[in-house]
């Protein structure tokens, strides 16, 4: 079954396939991130809003991380279009409840859009056409490259799943200080040395980005303009080399200073509040909410159809 689309219809379909790219455009229009040439704009610290009270902020960290991580894996398991849409709605509700920085929520979605657009452009046009599957020929593509509805469906499912999981990141990560969040991961069995490294890295990223920006400004003051040529690439190579040398030397100094202050491989942190019945209730409520679309689809499909009739 093949239907030929007119030019206007084909262009509308193409616009639909490119629609995830609206997100980065929206981000740039709304927030106009300042780009220093070559260097990305300054990073926002992950836990800048950790003190804002919200449903997730008051939840026990270990339970919160466990429940949300389980939900992430649940959301990427095989499921239909309606369930995926419900998942996105639940994730959106969770994001709103966590009172996040919407700028970063949009930035997260925009960061995925390139990869997802690539899939949306490739999947409908690749793969074998099944017998009896409806296909559409776009006006500006040869008939041998029809748009397959099943490919389009698969790409849409991926986009919805990726969006749902990305929306859960803000409630999971930015509603407590990073030290507390990582302690939550530790309670799930992530080794302490790994969480310590993540904590140190998160601290150092900002220091080194500042350092890199300073060096880059120095290069520009000396007349460096990045171009697509071998001289530029060599200059960038030397720049990276210098960044590593400086960071290594800094490490040495910082590590010695840490030893002098009694570092034993473990950062001291205040004791976390114990888990209460309220935290457990929240976990039950959240898990029930997260599985509700799937359960509705599994057990009440007949009932829904009955209501429809």
């Amino acid at each position: 079954m093949n239907a030929a689309l007119s030019w206007l219809e084909s262009l509308l379909v193409l616009a639909g396939l490119l629609s995830p790219l609206m997100l980065p455009m929206l981000y740039f229009l709304l927030y106009r991130p300042k780009r220093r040439d070559g260097l990305a704009s300054p990073i926002d610290s992950l836990d800048a809003r950790a003190a804002r009270p919200s449903f997730f902020q008051r939840w026990h960290c270990g339970l919160k991380v466990a429940c949300l991580l389980a939900t992430c894996f649940l959301f990427i398991s095989p499921r239909g279009l309606a369930v995926c849409l419900a998942d996105v709605a639940i994730a959106l509700l969770a994001t709103a409840l966590s009172r996040p920085s919407w700028r970063r929520v949009l930035a997260r979605l925009a960061a995925m859009s390139g990869f997802l657009t690539m899939l949306l452009l490739m999947l409908p046009f690749s793969g074998a056409v099944q017998a009896g599957e409806p296909t559409y020929s776009l006006a500006f593509l040869p008939d041998s490259l029809p748009l397959r509805l099943s490919g389009l469906g698969a790409a849409t499912l991926i986009i919805l799943k990726a969006t749902a999981v990305a929306l859960l990141m803000e409630p999971m990560l930015s509603t407590a200080t990073l030290a507390d969040t990582l302690h939550g991961f530790r309670q799930l069995g992530v080794p302490a040395s790994l969480t310590q490294m993540l904590l140190l890295c998160h601290r150092y990223i900002f220091v080194f980005q500042h350092e890199a920006a300073r060096m880059w400004r120095g290069m520009r003051l000396r007349g460096f303009v990045a171009g697509a040529n071998a001289a530029s690439l060599f200059a960038i190579g030397n720049f990276l080399g210098m960044l590593f040398v400086r960071s290594f030397e800094r490490t040495q100094r910082v590590y010695e200073a840490m030893l002098c202050r009694g570092f034993t491989g473990e950062m001291p942190r205040a004791a976390a509040p114990p888990m209460t019945a309220r935290d457990a209730l929240k976990a039950l409520f959240w898990l029930a909410l997260a599985v509700s679309p799937l359960v509705t689809e599994m057990y009440f499909a007949d009932f829904m159809r009955f209501l429809g009739e």
Partner: peptide
């Protein structure tokens, strides 16, 4: 993690963040 000495971890953390920052630098290509 098993093959590393604990005192090396801060060093690796710092190098990792240096790579992280370096990977944010965009290189012109055409």
């Amino acid at each position: 993690l098993r093959f590393l000495r604990p005192e090396d971890l801060p060093k690796i953390a710092v190098v990792t963040s240096a790579f992280f920052v370096a990977s944010l630098i965009s290189v012109p290509m055409g």
